[in-house]
Design a protein around this nucleic acid. Structure first.
Length: 851
DNA sequence: CGAAGCTTCCC
DNA sequence: CGGGAAGCTTC
């Protein structure tokens, strides 16, 4: 079946019609020779831009001038990533080259082409492996495109016969790509070029002949040249259509090429993938260091791209992460710094994406979600803070001190008196220094119009402790409020006064009187303040933040007095408020290990839990994630009862709550998640591992606890009726269980689709089966109509069949070469040869079992 | 010599 | 059968 091909010169001479290659048609197009499925798609009209006289001449004998010339289209492209295997690896059967629309679990497809506008009886469609490129004179590739025919494997080119019956469509099954070793590249190129040259000269001379020395030398030098530039990690398929005359193949039309097929195993063309990150968020100003694990990359050929999409999915912004060659560790990890967001003064979190990009071919990884976080002074607090005090936030320096902002009081100090920057610097470095305190308090009191001798016996001396300072603030608020009320103010004056009291008097941590009593757990004062706020309905004060962005709810949940906590929770605090770490009060409660009653109170919010129960903190953990990491079953149960979403993933690793529970070996939580919730047991994390897979992996140390976890998951899968045959087969290693699976398979009535898939792996008869089927057909004489159906009637009259003892056997042997077993099987079915069909079915399914 | 690339091997 | 990795070679 080795036929010849034309080279560039001939190519130009014939002048092929321009061919259109429409996008590969939809999934429902027929993918193989199948008599029973009609063709649904609409043929594109060829668009002829040139037709040389010679071409016209050769065609007029076949077509009248009205007819359009034939052309090839790709019905199904091959997959674009495939592992090229070395010869030494071909011992077992590995995956075959499937179609781009192939679905692992459902229907397999294969590279398929169609010869259009062709009305003769048959043609030969050839598939061979070529170097990828854009020019019209592409050269054969040094790798081998092999096709499995039973146990033997054949090299390309692969020629299939197409006829009216199969819609002039050829589908190439069971192909693999063998990676030719470096040292054999030249030899392989020469071999292929020689075969093509032989075909070419035969076509020109109309007779086969050997190559001249000159021709051989030319092949040798071009092969030597090419091996220097050949890309061993990218190939493509070339399809030709031929008409056979006197055992010489003549092209019917211009060949077409598939898109590129990349070697999945190579760092140059392999799939880019972010496997894990230690953070999935960054301050808006960027420069956060992130450790990222990736699939194999080349350090000189990789970038980390950040981008943002608007609602219509248009890219609004993009920027690259910062790193150099030395930050790429062994091709599998990158340590980089985040770029600044386009707007440094965002007042809310921004969802963006992060992905890998390979400059050499422009390919990109699947993007992962990433969050930019506003700096705390820009955070939306739900209310505008009145700027009645002497210092306004606009004066805050944007110094390099990030979270530890310069306290407002210090700022005032700097503005209000003569302090050298060196003094200030020293003060900042040693905020506890006595000298600093002295300077601070002298100015502080003066600034706020307070008399140092007022208050509670702190007169004349600077307060020594934080508590002293806090005391002053609380007392001032109480005093000023009471004094003010004596003056019988109007309502709006009171509101203004209160606002002022709770924003003007703050300590180093920007904590107002309410913050102070809440964190102290001073129930009496807390009730007093809350009562005032409640009477005047000034609820915004409840949500004021300190310098850590904490509200009173955050502060309350950090300490242990349950009465304080429940008192605060009775008021309408904003429970979705996030502190500087992105934690909501719920996060804080869980981290601080509050009692179940506290958590329950928190979740029983009259406004519902929607706004905060699933909120993520800056480490991209939800409250549920935290609860699981702390192995608190009770918390998980409570969160579940209040409607938490168990399927939210940790954006750094892609793990859902079950993954996390398994990793923490939190058996009880695993049990709860499996029994009560709709947790996704098969969800794959960024490294492609499902909880099931993860649990299985961890059982290898034979620890009973882990085995128990695995068993629970397995049972849950069965209970849910998920028959993920492939998954389960992978997971189960024990021999007996494997056998059970097999037996079940055998007794199962195979669906026709599944049967067809199995047929694709079988390409020839076993001798036993061939013998039996032949005998049946010899008796029934049905081999004759079979030959008719297969369009092989002409073979019947050849000597080979006419003089054979078993005509059926000869026919079947030819048939299996020009078409496939599945077609033959279906024709036999049509002819009512059920016994023969069963025999072939059994042969195909049992071969499958053996492998 | 170490890192990356190439080939073989293994479950 | 897909994935991982060991053991060579090359730079």
């Amino acid at each position: 079946m080795h036929d010849i091909q034309f080279n560039k010169a001939h190519h130009e001479m014939i002048g092929y019609p321009f061919t259109l290659t429409p996008p590969s048609s939809s999934e429902d197009s027929p993918q193989s020779f199948n008599m029973h499925s009609p063709n649904h798609y609409i043929l594109p009209q060829p668009y002829i831009i040139s037709a040389t006289p010679q071409y016209e001449m050769s065609m007029t004998s076949m077509y009248n001038s009205e007819m359009k010339p034939p052309y090839l289209t790709i019905v199904e492209q091959p997959i674009d990533k495939f592992r090229f295997r070395y010869k030494s690896e071909m011992a077992g059967t590995h995956g075959s080259l499937t179609g781009i629309n192939s679905d692992k679990t459902r229907k397999q497809t294969y590279p398929t082409v169609k010869l259009n506008n062709f009305f003769e009886r048959d043609a030969i469609i050839r598939c061979s492996l070529y170097q990828n490129g854009s020019s019209d004179d592409r050269q054969p590739h040094a790798h081998r495109l092999i096709m499995k025919h039973g146990h033997e494997e054949r090299d390309d080119p692969h020629d299939l016969l197409v006829t009216k019956d199969n819609g002039y469509e050829a589908s190439f099954h069971s192909m693999g790509i063998i990676h030719t070793a470096k040292k054999h590249i030249v030899g392989e190129l020469k071999r292929k070029k020689t075969l093509l040259k032989l075909e070419e000269v035969a076509r020109l001379d109309k007779i086969k002949r050997n190559l001249s020395i000159k021709e051989e030398v030319e092949i040798g030098t071009s092969a030597d040249e090419e091996c220097k530039s050949i890309n061993l990690n990218i190939v493509c398929l070339r399809f030709d259509a031929f008409r056979r005359e006197n055992d010489i193949l003549y092209p019917i039309c211009k060949p077409i090429y598939s898109h590129a097929i990349n070697n999945l195993k190579s760092a140059l063309t392999g799939e880019l993938k972010i496997v894990r990150m230690d953070h999935s968020s960054s301050p808006a100003k960027g420069n956060r260091e992130i450790f990222m694990l990736v699939e194999k990359v080349t350090k000189k050929n990789i970038k980390i791209r950040f981008f943002e999409l608007d609602e219509e999915e248009n890219e609004m912004w993009s920027e690259y992460g910062k790193f150099n060659d030395l930050d790429v560790h062994h091709q599998y990890a990158i340590v980089f710094r985040t770029p600044p967001y386009k707007d440094l003064n965002i007042d809310e979190q921004k969802k963006v994406f992060i992905e890998l990009e390979r400059p050499s071919d422009g390919s990109r990884s699947e993007p992962r979600e990433f969050t930019y976080i506003p700096s705390s002074q820009n955070y939306k607090t739900g209310m505008k803070r009145p700027r009645t005090s002497m210092y306004s936030s606009s004066e805050y320096s944007s110094s390099s001190l990030n979270s530890a902002e310069i306290p407002t009081t210090l700022e005032a100090l700097q503005n209000g008196c003569e302090v050298t920057s060196a003094d200030l610097h020293a003060a900042l470095e040693n905020i506890d220094s006595d000298e600093f305190r002295k300077i601070f308090y002298e100015n502080y009191t003066e600034f706020n119009g307070l008399q140092t001798d007022c208050g509670r016996g702190l007169s004349k001396r600077a307060p020594n402790t934080e508590e002293d300072k806090d005391r002053i603030i609380v007392d001032r608020v109480v005093e000023e409020y009471q004094d003010f009320m004596k003056s019988k103010p109007k309502n709006d004056q009171i509101l203004h006064m209160l606002q002022s009291l709770f924003t003007k008097y703050v300590n180093d941590a920007k904590e107002n009187a309410l913050h102070i009593v809440a964190s102290e757990g001073n129930l009496k004062m807390l009730r007093y303040f809350l009562n005032i706020i409640s009477i005047h309905k000034l609820y915004t004060i409840l949500n004021l933040r300190n310098s850590n962005m904490e509200t009173i709810a955050h502060l309350a949940l950090q300490q242990s007095n349950v009465d304080v906590i429940t008192t605060i929770l009775k008021y309408q605090c904003d429970l979705s408020a996030k502190d500087i770490n992105g934690n909501t009060p719920l996060h804080v409660a869980i981290i601080r290990n509050q009692s179940n009653i506290v958590i329950d109170t928190l979740l029983r919010s009259p406004y519902g839990t929607d706004l905060f129960i699933n909120a993520e903190n800056n480490d991209n953990f939800t409250a549920l994630h935290m609860a699981i990491k702390m192995n608190k079953v009770k918390y998980v149960d409570l969160l579940y009862k209040y409607g938490v979403n168990v399927n939210l993933i940790d954006k750094k690793t892609g793990r859902n709550s079950l993954h996390i529970a398994i990793a923490e070996q939190a058996t009880e939580i695993v049990k709860l998640l499996l029994e009560k919730t709709t947790i996704d047991i098969l969800k794959e994390d960024f490294s492609g591992r499902s909880p099931l897979n993860m649990a299985k992996h961890l059982t290898q140390d034979k620890e009973p606890e882990r085995i128990q976890i695995y068993n629970m998951i397995e049972k849950a899968l069965k209970d849910r009726g998920i028959h993920t045959e492939c998954v389960i087969k992978e997971e189960i290693e024990s021999e007996e269980e494997m056998e059970v699976e097999m037996v079940e398979c055998k007794f199962e009535k195979l669906a026709i689709d599944e049967l067809e898939t199995m047929y694709k792996n079988a390409t020839s008869f076993t001798s036993l089966c061939l013998e039996k089927v032949s005998r049946i057909l010899d008796v029934s004489q049905n081999w004759l109509p079979l030959a008719d159906l297969l369009d092989l009637k002409h073979f019947v009259h050849t000597n080979m069949i006419a003089h054979s003892k078993s005509k059926s056997r000869e026919l079947l042997q030819i048939a299996v070469k020009v078409t496939d077993l599945w077609t033959i099987r279906n024709f036999l079915d049509n002819l009512g040869e059920s016994e023969a069909v069963t025999l072939i079915d059994n042969m195909v399914t049992s071969t499958k079992m053996e492998t």
